[in-house]
Simulated scan of single mutants.
Amino acid sequence: MTEITENMDPSRLVETRRLYQQIADRVRALIQRGDYPTGSRLPPERDLAHQLGVSRPSLREALIALEIEGSVEIRMGSGVYVCSRALRRPGLAVAMGESPAELMQARSAVEGAVASLASANVTREGLARVQEAIDAMREDIAQGRDVLDHDRQFHICIAEMSGNSVLVSLVGTLFDERRSPLASHMRNRLEAQPTWGAALAEHEQILRCLSLRDPLAAESAMRAHIRAAADRWVIS
């Protein structure tokens, strides 16, 4: 938590707020000003993003943050509607987690390098643990269970093969941001069995590349997987 002192420049405090929070502040201000009264629909995402001068993924994160706090309701296929003032809990906006788009960008950078390192340190036991995680994911999908724990296990097992405990910790920390309120809300809206099936196929491709001990192929497969995951639940 940032400590506020008398000598701290107020402009630096603003910079600590994540971009989606700043965008949410702007949309909230429009609602409070009366531009969009209770029950009204906000402009389409493309138009609102253009009006605010921001990207659509960042706006989408802001709108989901506003939905979590009760300021708006997102109705799939219909639009985003302003909620009654009695339902709003704006204090929640400060503890919703990192930007999912930025999170996936960071994971791509880190885990691509991790996969490359792991391919140079492959062991039969390590590959077996990765395979176990994939098999457990497949069973979760078939049974309609939450796949996230075994998805995490897959990525951690690969990080462990890198032989670098700092990277293992970093991969775990980045992955666990998917459990933040903002990321969880987005995931629950957009992830389903078909998307997890695609993720499983991507995991199997990463395992094949690791088995071949090909650093470039393993890195490429990991980056492609995380980019596809971002497309499925962050960008699309």
Rank of each mutant, 00 (worst) to 15 (best):
M1E: 13
M1W: 13
M1Y: 15
E3S: 07
I4L: 12
E6M: 05
E6P: 04
P10M: 02
L13T: 13
E15Q: 10
L19G: 12
Y20F: 15
I23E: 06
R26A: 15
V27G: 04
V27D: 07
I31C: 12
Q32R: 14
R33W: 15
D35Q: 13
D35F: 14
Y36C: 06
P37A: 00
P43G: 06
P44G: 04
R46M: 09
D47N: 11
D47K: 08
A49K: 03
A49S: 06
A49V: 00
Q51V: 15
G53L: 07
V54K: 02
V54S: 03
S55G: 10
R56I: 14
R56N: 06
P57Q: 03
S58W: 14
S58R: 06
L59R: 00
R60D: 15
A62L: 10
L63S: 10
A65E: 08
L66G: 07
E69H: 02
S71D: 10
R75G: 02
Y81R: 01
V82N: 02
V82A: 01
C83Y: 04
A86N: 11
G91S: 02
G91T: 04
G91N: 04
M96N: 05
A101E: 13
E102L: 12
L103Y: 11
R107H: 06
A109P: 12
E111P: 00
G112D: 01
L117S: 08
L117V: 00
A120T: 14
V122Q: 02
E125S: 08
L127S: 02
A128R: 11
R129C: 09
E132T: 11
R138C: 11
R138F: 07
Q143K: 14
G144H: 12
L148G: 01
D149R: 01
D149A: 07
H150M: 02
D151H: 03
R152E: 00
R152L: 01
I156W: 00
I156Q: 00
C157A: 04
C157T: 02
E160Y: 01
G163D: 01
G163I: 05
N164T: 03
N164F: 00
S165M: 06
S165K: 03
S165N: 05
V166S: 05
L167M: 03
G172T: 06
D176E: 12
E177V: 09
R178M: 13
R178L: 15
R179Y: 13
R179F: 07
S180M: 08
H185F: 07
R189L: 01
L190Q: 08
E191D: 05
Q193H: 06
P194C: 00
T195I: 11
W196S: 00
W196K: 03
L200T: 05
L200I: 07
A201E: 14
E202R: 05
H203I: 03
E204F: 01
L207A: 15
C209T: 14
L210N: 08
S211I: 04
S211Y: 09
D214T: 04
L216F: 09
A218V: 02
A218E: 09
M222N: 10
A224Y: 05
H225R: 09
H225M: 08
I226H: 12
A229L: 08
A230K: 10
D231A: 08
W233K: 07
I235T: 14
I235K: 14
I235Q: 14
S236D: 10
